[in-house]
Design a protein around this nucleic acid. Structure first.
Length: 661
RNA sequence: GCGCCCGUAGCUCAGUUGGAUAGAGCAGCGGACUUCUAAUCCGCAGGUCGGGGGUUCGAAUCCUCCCGGGCGCGCCA
């Protein structure tokens, strides 16, 4: 479906070309600063007039005349203002008609398969608020692509053979004297236990050289899958990952497949990727210097790599072991189906009832599946990984896969820190410098952070309490359910509303607030709309939703939604009703913009704006008490469109709509 | 040192790839509830857009130089 804005842009482009006699870029259709000026506006005349050396106001007028002569549907008025702004007023009935038609529409299916990798938490401790930012953004990005019709596959990369797991392995084996079997039997919450154990081991590692040597050995054992250490690593990673899956499920976040680094090693994907890289002149074995004996990727003089003192990236160490980025390159080659070898999979067990459980890689012993073969791969990982992500993309370019390298996208975002106030509440020591900076960095190694499950528990508890006060008759189950749904909205919206490159200073009190620009505010608008329909329905003894839908489909119309008076009321509105309709008409472009710019905050803001617009409408346009049938019919129709559209946006943002709140 | 990002109301942040009088939320002050649920709405107050210079009809936005902050630059992951 084509948006009004897109249609107007094309019409104006034609008119400009007709008037100037030369090709012009697709003009941008903007929102005028104030509604009195018009519904939409275009400033292209100023730019184009400058280029061809003519008067912008005259050019604008000529273009406006040309557009009118061509007969532009959907526009009721076109005028020139100021130095040459082209202002447009829309045909309201036409726009509302198109809006209503779009409500029932599905996205046109796209061919290109999008693979989104997100979460990818080291499986050695409980998930914290920083991990949630990654997972909420990644999950929402996947939802955005689905809303646009793309087939989407969601990956969660599990680094089950890395140093962080090694640290916890040491904790269990050397500090606690546990066995893999006894660790398998430890009670939940296992990830909380590991959180503390990891902190303890990290602390000892800073001063204990024997333990540092031990860690190197454990790491090698994990990579080779040898001995009790590897067995322990497996138990730890498996238990932690299952906790992570459950934590994320509380926020409506799901995965298609968990790719384990251990399986990449067992399958030896790296050796196949390595063969390809060796064929590039940019990858070579260094004979002397500080990288003697290493295989490196040459990066000197390539844009984006000026930061290196010595612009070579080691892929294989002199001891023959591949580096982390090398394994990541192999994984990404596999994502695009460039490798011959493939994983097998098994369904993940032990994560409770998740509906469709994810698959996990299982070396060569599982079942086959058509995962991978992406046309576009997006990796959600924080900005500190920018350099390594660029190295991965470069690996595509030096092996003659520049096209894939260009579609490979690093979805980067900034860190989540804590406000000093919240750090104080958590008992985290805050030094004077941090207090001045207004935020305190979290540290998994030190155990500084807000655990995701704790946050969800507290939010759910507070929300349920609030719901109970507002709805005295509601039973426990209803209150709990509403609390859970409100908590999801609070967390997801809080983590999605900031631009990617904004450092979030997480403040417990702000995050727990349900007022202002928050997820619960938006939910409240949706619940209000639904409640009007419930009340009106019981008053009129009909299902208003169904009645409206039937009326729009050309069936019975007891409310008079199709009556001519409705059109008159719409044309004469000079307030929040038309504002709301205009806002509703921008749904598709809001989703598209988020996908094009990878800026989810824009879509979050749109959802908030819609809710805000509805709340204004709600106060100024009574429906149950409407004295005029045509007024009431129009308002019901607008509220209906709002309800549907807001539900669409909230679904894309992963935010549920409670029955009551 | 080199590279990337940031600096906008008291606080937290937007600002649609150069446009019309720079906007929200929170906090503050003042209003609107025997209600379509006040988790709401309306109003007031609050700004040398870090600073200087430049580009042009027009700059928070682009260029340049300062100041201040964050992150990255390993044969760790």
């Amino acid at each position: 479906m084509q948006t009004t804005r897109a249609r107007l842009a094309i019409s104006l482009q034609r008119a400009f070309e007709e008037v100037t006699g030369s090709p012009v870029d697709l003009p941008r259709i903007e929102d005028p600063p104030r509604r009195e000026m018009g519904d939409l506006a275009c400033t292209a005349a100023l730019q184009i007039a400058k280029e061809i050396g003519t008067n912008p106001r005259e050019l604008g007028q000529k273009v406006a005349d040309a557009v009118e002569a061509a007969g532009l549907t959907g526009v009721s008025e076109i005028s020139i203002a100021g130095p040459g702004f082209i202002n447009l007023r829309l045909d309201r009935a036409a726009l509302l008609g198109a809006l209503v038609e779009d409500l029932a529409g599905a996205p046109s299916p796209q061919d290109a398969k999008v693979l989104v990798e997100h979460t990818s938490i080291n499986p050695n401790k409980a998930a914290h608020i920083g991990h949630l930012r990654n997972a909420c953004m990644g999950d929402t990005l996947a939802r955005i692509y689905r809303a646009l019709g793309y087939p989407v596959e969601v990956h969660n990369y599990i680094d089950d053979t890395g140093v962080q797991v090694a640290d916890v392995v040491i904790g269990f084996l050397d500090l606690r004297g546990d066995t893999p079997e006894s660790v398998g039997e430890l009670p939940e919450p296992f990830d909380y236990l590991c959180w503390d154990l990891y902190t303890e081991v990290s602390d000892r590692l800073t001063s204990d050289e024997d333990l540092q040597a031990r860690r190197r050995d454990v790491l090698l054992a994990l990579e080779h899958g040898d001995g009790v250490e590897a067995k322990m690593g497996q138990v730890v990673a498996e238990r932690i990952v299952r906790r992570h899956i459950r934590t994320m499920a509380r926020l409506g976040i799901r995965y298609d497949v968990l790719v384990k680094e251990g399986d990449i090693l067992r399958l030896d994907l790296w050796s196949e990727a390595f063969e390809r890289l060796k064929s590039s002149p940019q990858v070579r074995l260094v004979e002397d210097g500080k990288h003697a004996g290493c295989w490196v990727m040459h990066l000197t003089g390539i844009k984006g790599f000026e930061n290196l003192e010595e612009a070579d990236k080691v892929l294989v160490r002199s001891n023959g072991v591949a580096t982390y980025v090398a394994k990541d390159i192999a994984y990404h080659f596999w994502k695009y189906g460039l490798l011959d070898r493939d994983f097998t999979y098994s369904p993940v067990e032990g994560v409770g009832d998740l509906g469709d459980p994810p698959f996990e890689t299982s070396g060569r012993d599982g079942i086959e599946h058509d995962f991978g073969n992406a046309d576009r791969a997006v990796t959600v990982i924080d900005v500190r990984q920018s350099y390594l992500q660029a190295v991965v993309a470069q690996a595509f370019r030096v092996t003659d896969h520049a096209a894939e390298g260009d579609t490979l996208t690093h979805f980067s975002y900034e860190m989540v820190a804590l406000t000093p106030r919240t750090a104080d509440q958590l008992g985290i020591p805050v030094d004077a410098d941090d207090r001045d900076k207004s935020f305190v960095e979290m540290s998994g190694r030190r155990g500084y952070g807000v655990k995701a499950d704790d946050l969800m528990d507290e939010l759910g508890r507070r929300a349920a309490e609030e719901v109970g006060e507002r709805n005295p008759g509601m039973d426990d189950a209803g209150r709990t359910q509403a609390g859970v749904e409100i908590a999801i909205a609070a967390v997801r919206y809080f983590l999605l509303k900031y631009a990617r490159n904004t450092v979030i200073a997480f403040d417990m009190d702000d995050a727990l607030s349900f007022e202002g620009e928050t997820g619960p505010y938006i939910q409240y608008a949706a619940v209000r709309a639904a409640h009007i329909f419930d009340k009106l329905g019981s008053e009129l003894e009909m299902d208003v939703n169904q009645v409206v839908s039937e009326a729009l489909g050309g069936g019975q119309d007891p409310l008079g939604i199709r009556s001519p008076e409705v059109g008159t009321r719409l044309a004469n509105d000079d307030g929040e009703l038309w504002d709301l309709i205009l806002a509703l008409g921008r749904y598709e472009e809001a989703v598209q913009l988020a996908a094009d710019t990878l800026e989810i905050s824009a879509l979050a803001k749109y959802a908030f704006h819609l809710a805000q617009q509805f709340n204004r409408f709600y106060h100024g346009y009574p429906i149950l008490q409407a004295t005029d049938d045509a007024d009431r019919a129009l308002r019901v129709l607008v509220a209906y469109a709002f309800q549907k559209r807001l539900a669409d946006v909230l679904d894309v943002l992963g935010i549920p709509v409670p029955n009551r709140m």
